[in-house]
Amino acid sequence: MSVLPLLPTSLVGSYAQPDWLIDRDRLRDTFPPRIRAKELWRVAPELLAEAQDDATLLAIGAQRDAGLDILTDGEIRRESYSNHFATALEGVDLDNPGMALSRSGTPNPVPRITGPIRRPHPIQLADLRYLKAHSDRPVKITVPGPFTMTKQAQNDHYPDPAAAAMGYAAVVNAEVKDLFSAGADIVQLDEPGLQGWPDEARQYGLAALNAALDGVTGTTAVHLCFGYAALVPGRPDGYSFLPELAGCPADQISIETAQSGLDLGVLADLSEKTVILGVIDLSTDEVESVEVVAGRVRRAFDHLPPEQLVIAPDCGMKYLPMAAAAGKMRAMVGAAHLLRAELGD
């Protein structure tokens, strides 16, 4: 990976999908799908792949135009952050789905595990290659984490959830290694489930995460959040699972601090990690000023040196209007330039 500037800027993963591609009203009114939700796409099936490519180019271009230092594919081809990967695996029955409770206790249709979890082929290599072919900057791609996928499935095969999580960990491990072999600069595992079910996360989730990253060479990140702000408006006072990640193999930990006003004393627990600092509030379409964003970043300087911080939104931008998403990215980049000048970099 090329040398990044001080306080590099990046999305957490997703960018806003255009209205001509996906039914955004229906998307907002639907709990993030765990099984396939093809009815969300506005484009005919035979034209969908081409349309998703075109929309991905828009997302890459929007990030580049805003000045982000690290680019993603915006997760444009995904109905949700996790189902794109989870529903491509063998060992799950999608035609006869099961049921699982969300972190808020809502029952949702989910993949039903009926056999050993296997990856029939690399799932996101084509997405990565498309991103790299249209990027002149370091790139990041995201994969759902094993614990979160376990919580988003009905286990009718493995003897217990811990065994299921290890089944998912093995396929995630293989995918991450393939992504690095194909030239990914950063691979991020999305693990909101660790925050949502902290007791089970301690019992077997951390072990599954460690297994998913075992033997991986390359810069890795783990993202924790409180849920999409558009769907989960409230925020707790702090993370229920964060210090536990201090010893995990991931190089970077992604947390949200803007909407929650999180007490950044928690960063002391992550003193050996780079922290992807969420400083963009996704509960509102209002675009923050450069100074507001810079102030949110400055709060972290008492706990971590700037060299260990990446500036990012709280979570994915999937539910924002495209104009608001673009404006918020520009505010991030402006804040980075302001802070670099203040720090003499």
Rank of each mutant, 00 (worst) to 15 (best):
G193C: 11
G215T: 07
K151S: 09
E191A: 12
D199F: 14
D214V: 13
E175S: 04
P192L: 07
N155H: 01
A182S: 13
A211P: 01
D160A: 09
Q188W: 07
G193V: 08
Q154A: 11
Q188N: 08
V172G: 01
D178T: 11
E200C: 08
A211I: 05
L194E: 01
Q195T: 11
M166R: 13
G167R: 02
A208R: 03
P192I: 05
A169S: 05
A153G: 03
G183H: 01
I186D: 03
V187C: 03
A212M: 04
D199W: 15
L179M: 11
G193M: 09
S181P: 13
F180I: 08
A162E: 06
Q152E: 14
D185F: 11
L194P: 10
N210R: 15
V187F: 10
F180Q: 09
A165Y: 00
L209P: 08
I186L: 07
D160I: 06
K151M: 15
F180D: 05
L206F: 09
V187R: 06
L194K: 02
G193N: 07
A165T: 03
D185S: 13
A212D: 04
D214I: 14
S181M: 15
P198E: 06
M166G: 04
V171R: 00
G183F: 01
P159H: 00
P159V: 01
V172L: 05
K177F: 12
L209N: 05
E175L: 03
A153E: 01
G183E: 01
M166P: 00
L189T: 06
G167H: 00
A162N: 04
Y168V: 03
L206D: 07
L179E: 11
R202W: 13
L213W: 08
Y204N: 04
A162K: 11
L213R: 05
A165G: 02
K177A: 15
L209V: 11
L194T: 02
A211D: 08
N155R: 02
L209C: 10
K151P: 11
A162V: 05
D156W: 04
K177Y: 15
G183I: 02
E200H: 12
T217K: 15
P198M: 12
Q203F: 14
Q154K: 12
D214G: 12
E175N: 08
V187W: 10
L209S: 07
D156H: 10
A170I: 14
Q195I: 08
D214E: 15
A182E: 14
Y158N: 00
A212R: 04
G215Y: 14
L189C: 10
D185T: 10
A184S: 03
A153T: 04
A163P: 10
V171E: 00
